[in-house]
């Protein structure tokens, strides 16, 4: 079981809801992933075309925990406002703090992220900040009361996978709250690797929504996260420089 604040989840895969080819494929992908947590963004509604469909109308909303993000916020003040808007929906008190500090890399602003985390914790939210893989910052977020920390594996949507496994390991090792690797996951191998490193969960979006077959990829990610977790719990063998035979050397009947 993954515990984040007062929430408990069987699935360790959190799924984003952006950029799917269409809502039917998205719904099938969400089903196959067996995720319990869906992320969303908060945006202005097109009031002149209210007939535009919304993904929320396609799913049984009671089946999922909503994790709205504060994407679009440039500072803590905006992030807190977006979190409060999301909470006013009456559907969630969890929030993914996402404050982008650089438009090209989409890397988070560490100072504003920390500030927003403190404020939202004080407001009673369950707070999951998206952060870089900075080890000290992850610690400070935790000290600020974050209910989980969500370090990026690599830039958002880049699909580069885990480019600094050492930092992620340090973050995981020191953390007393769940570590959910968020952003940059490209393939099931990346997701499994994150879990093998000891991450408590993985949040991904483009790796599924952008795959040739998002439904199949969603299923693959489910297995990858499960396999990685089991592998972590089982404990892998140490790496050695030279071969160690797995067949017994005694009793060989061939040769002399």
């Amino acid at each position: 079981m993954l515990k984040v604040g007062n929430y408990q989840f069987k699935s360790r895969l959190f799924l984003g809801t952006g950029k799917y080819p269409d809502f039917d494929i998205q719904k099938q992908a969400v089903d196959k992933s067996e995720t319990e947590v869906l992320t969303f963004s908060v945006r202005r509604m097109n009031i002149y075309d209210p007939s535009l469909p919304n993904f929320l109308e396609k799913i049984d909303v009671n089946q999922y925990t909503f994790l709205p993000n504060t994407a679009g916020a440039k500072d803590a003040k905006e992030a807190v406002r977006i979190a409060k808007l999301a909470a006013a929906s009456g559907r969630c008190d969890m929030v993914k703090v996402e404050i982008i500090g650089c438009d090209k890399t989409l890397l988070p602003d560490p100072i504003e992220t920390l500030k927003a985390t403190k404020e939202l914790v004080a407001e009673g939210f369950t707070v999951l900040p998206y952060t870089s893989d900075d080890v000290v910052l992850a610690k400070k977020l935790q000290e600020a009361g974050a209910h989980a920390v969500m370090p990026g594996a690599s830039p958002i949507g880049s699909g580069q996978g885990i480019i600094n496994p050492l930092n992620l390991s340090f973050i995981i090792e020191q953390s007393s709250v769940p570590v959910i690797v968020d952003a940059g996951i490209g393939s099931p191998a990346d997701a499994a690797y994150a879990m093998e490193l000891g991450a408590d969960g993985v949040l991904l979006n483009t790796a599924v929504s952008g795959a040739n077959d998002p439904v199949k990829m969603a299923e693959a990610m489910k297995y990858a996260v499960e396999a990685g977790r089991l592998g972590y719990e089982a404990g892998r063998i140490p790496k050695k420089d030279y071969a160690v035979a797995s067949s017994p050397e005694e009793g060989i009947s061939i040769g002399n």
Binding site: G18, F40, V42, N54
Partner: peptide
Amino acid sequence: VEIVHFVGGG
């Protein structure tokens, strides 16, 4: 007045 809603996002 701001009228907002949830849209797809990661």
